[in-house]
């Protein structure tokens, strides 16, 4: 059985990818994820300057998932070169996630990432809890088009765009495709909140956070289905993938690969190896030989 696949020239031994922001702040943690079976890894979203992020509490468990407002904490692009160097030893594709406040910042960051040797850049246009970044930019169709268009002119590596559900997905996806992006990643965490009943106040210091994990899977599957139905570029599915069947479901909806974030919490860092094994079991039972055969078969 063949789990290996290729997306925009990125050769992957299997379709499981570490999602941005989970275990991706340090090169050695990325290496460890690679050792645990991932097909590719995505870095933490990196910006121009070091950013401390929000005060704690920044990560909580809720009934059906996690809710976080880390706030794009990162050491800044210059410092991050060392982490990339370490991560590249894994020999699997390293995807550099970046966030900026405008076109200029995105171009600068993407060029830097490219010079460090990453296989692709992923634009975080969807972080739900950082002022002036993420969603606040990803919601502006024209701005997104402009950023992607400029990036494609300035870097040679593939450009992935990670989008949020809190926007008009189909028209945004079409815009991203027409700006010549190489793939769309969907979804980022959903805007959420947790209020404590004893203290009668939001628990996250940022109040609003990003909801991820098992509870958001149906939203992710629907989003991927809508995008895959309306554009031709590859879609990378993300949101609540915990096991092989979740991954297969996303691939049926049209995802060429899947990203896993919260699954690291629920099943441990070897979640990648576990999911690959479970995908294989499913394929065997259903007589599929190549993973690519599953992609999009649910688009009916």
């Amino acid at each position: 059985m063949k789990l290996s696949t290729e997306i925009s020239g990125l050769k992957m031994r299997n379709p499981t990818v570490l999602a941005s922001g989970v275990l991706g702040e340090t090169g050695e943690s990325l290496l460890n994820v690679a050792r645990n079976g991932a097909g590719a890894v995505t870095t933490k979203s990196i910006g121009i300057k070091p950013k401390k992020g929000n005060k704690n509490p920044t990560v909580l468990e809720t009934e059906h998932g996690l809710i976080n407002a880390v706030g794009l904490a990162n050491p800044g692009i210059d410092e991050y070169e060392n982490e990339i160097k370490i991560a590249l030893k894994s020999k699997i594709p390293v995807i550099g996630s970046i966030f900026g406040k405008d076109k200029k910042e995105f171009v600068y960051l993407a060029k830097k990432m490219g010079s460090f040797g990453v296989s692709a850049v992923e634009l975080n246009l969807s972080c739900p809890h950082a002022k002036g970044y993420g969603i606040e930019i990803g919601d502006d169709k024209k701005l997104v088009y402009d950023i992607v268009k400029n990036l494609k002119k300035s870097v040679d590596i593939p450009v992935f765009v990670k989008i949020s559900v809190h926007t008009n997905i189909v028209s945004l996806a079409k815009n991203i495709e027409s700006a010549k992006a190489d793939a769309i990643v969907a979804v980022n965490s959903l805007k959420g909140m947790k209020i404590d009943l004893d203290l009668r106040m939001p628990v996250l210091s940022n109040k609003i956070g990003g909801y991820s994990g098992p509870g958001i899977k149906p939203v992710g599957v629907r989003t991927v289905y809508e995008i895959a139905s309306s554009v031709k570029i590859p879609v990378i599915g993300c949101g609540g993938i915990m096991n092989g069947e979740d991954a297969v479901e996303y691939m049926m909806a049209g995802a060429s690969a899947v990203q896993i974030g919260s699954g690291v919490y629920y099943r441990g860092v070897d979640v990648f190896r576990k999911i690959c094994k479970e995908i294989k079991t499913w394929m065997k039972k259903n007589s599929y030989k190549k993973i690519d055969e599953i992609v999009g078969i649910g688009l009916r």
């Binding site: 275990l23 468990e61 690291v264 919490y265």
Partner: peptide
């Protein structure tokens, strides 16, 4: 930050 092994802020050599 998280205390549950996912945010990577308390990482030391993996």
């Amino acid at each position: 930050k998280c205390g549950i092994g996912i945010c990577d802020s308390c990482a030391i050599n993996g």
